[in-house]
Each structure stands twice: as structure tokens, then as C-alpha cells.
């Protein structure tokens, strides 16, 4: 008798678990749809013709797939008076982001190495100040930065924008590398010193080869920051050096007459693709790198 009750209770609890599990899946699916919806609308809209957009529903699949909007967005859309599409601005962004990412990552690695492994008087204060730099709002530095760029003679140029992003990124990159290097035993540096290696030799031969996970994290972080930046891009650029985020804004806001939603959507997707790509390529290292240091390797 008791056996029967027990097994009945067990069956009941098992059914309960299955129901709960399915409920969970349903909720997760709803959230996934919620998050994917904008992307879906963007992609489908960019593949429709203007005519179809006007007459059809927002969420409907395109009746006829056309890449005209993509072509226009890439090389024909007008940003103000210029009608070359986003292409020149895309390359501007590449020219800003690639050196900006490389320089800020390398300097961050060196800074982190010094702060974590070559303790000197005031190292903690300097690190704290750099950390503080991470939390300064962009708007606060706009005017002083404009003045500095002017004094350096690189206002409105691509090197100027690289400089701004390197300076603003240093706080974060230093933080990443410092936290990574602080988990590496100091004895490693000592052993290398006894072996006769100097400051740069130890960095180059011992610390950099160890740093792949944190380099990936830093590169993703910096690339996303610099590529997606709008405020610095719009403030410190002039015609010809504007990054793609600024161009996107100009395309969307400066059209006259009929709004070409398909072109806008295509341009937006083009602007977002590189960051997506970086994350897809290096994503698995990103997770690894974020958790590195918390677990002893």
C-alpha cells in the first residue's frame, strides 16, 4: 500500500518536473523571439523593395528578394550632399579601429605587466587613477580633448581619433591585463631575472605568450567600443574622416522625400557586421578569458 502511494507521488513529481521544464523552454523561446525580432525585421526589410515595404506588413517575409538596397547603402546612399554610400566611412572606421585596438591593447598589456609584476612606490595609486579613468563620462572629456587635439595638430584627422580612443581605452585595457597578470606568480619574474632577462625580454618571452585569452577579451572589448563609438566620432571628425556610425546617422536623418527604409536597414546591418564577426570568430576565447584567473590553470 505504502509502495503504491510512494510511486504515485514519484510519478506526480516527475510530471511536475516535465511541466516546469517545458514552461521554462516556452519562456526562453519567447525571450529569444523578442530579442531576434528587430534583427529579423531589419534583414527582411533590407531585402524588400520600397514598393513592397509600403504595401506589405512589417514582419512579412519578402515576396521578392532584392539586393538593390544593399548596393545603394554600400556605394550610393546620400550622406548630406555626398552620395557614395557608407563605403568610404566603413574604411574610415577600419582605419580608426584597427590601429586603435592594437595600440591600446599593447599599451594596456605593458601597463598591466608593470602594475602587476614590477611593484613600485605608488603603483596602487597609479592603477586606481587609471581605473578612475574608466568611469569618466565621455561628455566630460569632449572640450579638453578638442583643445588637446588642436594643440597636437591632429584635430579632425584619423590619427586624432585613434589617439582619443587609445587614451580612453587605456583604463580598461590596463585593468584587464593587470587582473590577468596579477594571478601569475611573482616567482616567474624572479626566475627570469635570475636567468638574466630584462624588463622587455620577460614581457615579450614569458608574459605575452601567456596572454592569448586576455588579448582576445581586450581586442573584442576595444573593437566593439571603438567601432560603435558615435560621440567621439561626431565631435572630433570632419568631412572625409567620419566613422561609419556618423555616416549611418547622416544617411538616416538627411534623406529628403520618401524614407528608404530598406537602404537604412542595409546600412545599419553593414555598420554592425564587423563587431558581430569579431565576436563570432573570437567568442569562445572571450568567455574563457573572462573566467581566466578565477580558476587556477
Amino acid at each position: 500500500m505504502t509502495d503504491v502511494t510512494h510511486s504515485a507521488a514519484r510519478t506526480q513529481s516527475r510530471t511536475g518536473q516535465i511541466v516546469l521544464r517545458w514552461l521554462l523552454y516556452v519562456i526562453l523561446c519567447l525571450f529569444a523571439v523578442y530579442y531576434l525580432m528587430p534583427l529579423f525585421v531589419m534583414v527582411t526589410t533590407s531585402l524588400k523593395s520600397l514598393e513592397e515595404i509600403r504595401t506589405g506588413s512589417l514582419v512579412a517575409l519578402p515576396r521578392e528578394i532584392t539586393f538593390d538596397a544593399w548596393k545603394t547603402a554600400w556605394s550610393g546612399a546620400c550622406t548630406g550632399i555626398q552620395c557614395d554610400g557608407v563605403r568610404p566611412f566603413f574604411w574610415n572606421s577600419v582605419l580608426i579601429a584597427v590601429p586603435g585596438v592594437l595600440i591600446s591593447t599593447l599599451l594596456g598589456a605593458l601597463n598591466g605587466y608593470v602594475v602587476a609584476q614590477w611593484r613600485f612606490r605608488g603603483a596602487n595609486i597609479i592603477f586606481a587613477l587609471m581605473l578612475f579613468g574608466c568611469f569618466i563620462p565621455f561628455q566630460v572629456v569632449l572640450l579638453p580633448m578638442a583643445r588637446v587635439l588642436g594643440l597636437m595638430g591632429i584635430a579632425g584627422t584619423i590619427p586624432g581619433l585613434i589617439f582619443v580612443h587609445v587614451v580612453y581605452g587605456l583604463g580598461f585595457t590596463t585593468l584587464f591585463f593587470r587582473n590577468y597578470y596579477v594571478t601569475i606568480p611573482a616567482e616567474l619574474t624572479k626566475a627570469a631575472k635570475v636567468d638574466g632577462a630584462g624588463f622587455l625580454r620577460i614581457f615579450w618571452s614569458i608574459f605575452l605568450p601567456l596572454s592569448l585569452p586576455i588579448i582576445v577579451v581586450t581586442v573584442i572589448w576595444q573593437f566593439t567600443q571603438i567601432w560603435n563609438d558615435f560621440l567621439f566620432g561626431v565631435s572630433f571628425s570632419q568631412a572625409g574622416t567620419q566613422p561609419i556610425t556618423v555616416a549611418l546617422n547622416n544617411i538616416v536623418n538627411s534623406t529628403t522625400g520618401v524614407k528608404e527604409y530598406n537602404v537604412d536597414m542595409a546600412a545599419a546591418i553593414i555598420a554592425a557586421l564587423p563587431t558581430l564577426l569579431v565576436y563570432v570568430v573570437a567568442g569562445k576565447y572571450f568567455i574563457r578569458g573572462l573566467t581566466a584567473g578565477s580558476v587556477k590553470g
Binding site: L188, A191, K193, L210
Partner: peptide, 20 residues
């Protein structure tokens, strides 16, 4: 004098082998 010129060699508690 700096460590490298002291004509010494050292073995550490954690061995401090270069991991890569």
C-alpha cells in the same frame, strides 16, 4: 649588483617554470 650578474642560480617553491 643585479641578480643576473651575481653568478647564482635559484630554485623556487612553485618551480616557476615558464609555462609556454
Amino acid at each position: 649588483v643585479s641578480p643576473k650578474d651575481r653568478d647564482i642560480a635559484m630554485v623556487f617553491q612553485s618551480y616557476a617554470l615558464y609555462p609556454t
